[in-house]
Computed example of a mutant assay.
Amino acid sequence: MSMWIANSYGKINLGLHVLERLPTGYHRIETGLCFIEWKDRFEVKESESYQLTMSDETIPTDSSNLITKAYDTFEKYVGLNNHYSFNVIKNIPAGAGLGGGSSNAALTLRILNKLEDAGLSDNELIDFGRTLGADVPFFIKGKPGIATGLGHDIEPADIQPDAWIVVMYPNFESSTPEVYQNCTPNPDHDFSIKGVLLEEEIDQWQFLLENDLEAPVFAKHELVGNIKDQMLEFGAEVAMMSGSGSTVYGIFDQDFVAINAYESFHKLGFPANLTRPEFEPDNGIYRKD
């Protein structure tokens, strides 16, 4: 029986402005989104019924899993001629601010669209994906860009850094709803994230970019702020928390400086990842006979 394989990549937020808290409880934001090489691997086969196994057995595989939610959504609105088993080798930490769950959901929709020969466009898949997670449209498009509104509206932009990215997870999750609840929206930032990312050099980003969610996370988890400081001490041009945390990344101009930071975090026992300059994710879905 044929197997289909594909990779599900993580992301980082290049700055994040929380502009407004809406009556619905959601927030209007602006953020830059780019890819990192941290990835999960999907192995998919035809099956008599839907099955999901994860290499990390602590992650639920029931209806709370975004892969299962995406599968159910596709089956409900498009229909399935066959059923499939998903085996996922999980590497992206959960609850880390790296979009791992949303990336998994987006890839599930893309795989089903291909294997079922449904012929849906990216925009049609995005319509389904909006209900699954704010970052799902970004992962379906598969290109870096500026996210606005509730995070669903993605404007493609050439903002993938031409520099090394070191990403470090401090071994604990950050609660997205709690972090947003404790942040202070600001509709009048001095600089727009889009303007900074498209018009300024990377060595200026540290002074012009902000993540408005850092303050509530740093107040609760002092370690996250310390890691940001450590990234800068290691020689990062930019250091920032990604999304609602708890992961911190540093952007480095020189490879040996980035590699030293990456290896140092590993020696301290923290999961870390190193991404090459101008990284482009492989969004292919490949048949393996």
Rank of each mutant, 00 (worst) to 15 (best):
S2M: 08
Y9T: 05
N13G: 04
L14Y: 08
L14I: 05
G25W: 06
H27F: 11
R28G: 03
I29P: 00
E30C: 07
F35K: 01
E37A: 09
K39Y: 08
K39M: 13
D40H: 10
L52D: 05
T53Y: 07
D56G: 07
I59W: 04
T61W: 01
K69Q: 15
T73D: 08
N87V: 13
K90E: 10
N91Y: 02
A94L: 10
A96H: 00
G97T: 06
G97N: 09
L98I: 05
G101C: 07
S102C: 11
N104Y: 02
L112S: 10
K114S: 12
A118G: 02
E124T: 07
E124M: 01
L125Q: 12
L125T: 13
F128L: 15
R130P: 01
L132Q: 06
G151M: 02
P156F: 04
Q160L: 05
D162G: 10
V167H: 07
P170Y: 10
F172W: 05
T176E: 07
V179Y: 01
H189F: 01
V196F: 06
V196P: 07
E199K: 15
Q204N: 15
Q204C: 12
W205H: 08
L209P: 10
E210Y: 13
K220Y: 02
E222L: 01
L223K: 03
M231S: 03
G235N: 05
S244R: 00
G245F: 10
T247D: 02
Q254S: 09
I259P: 00
N260D: 14
E263R: 14
G269H: 13
N273G: 15
F279G: 10
G284P: 02
I285D: 08
Y286K: 15
R287I: 11
R287T: 11
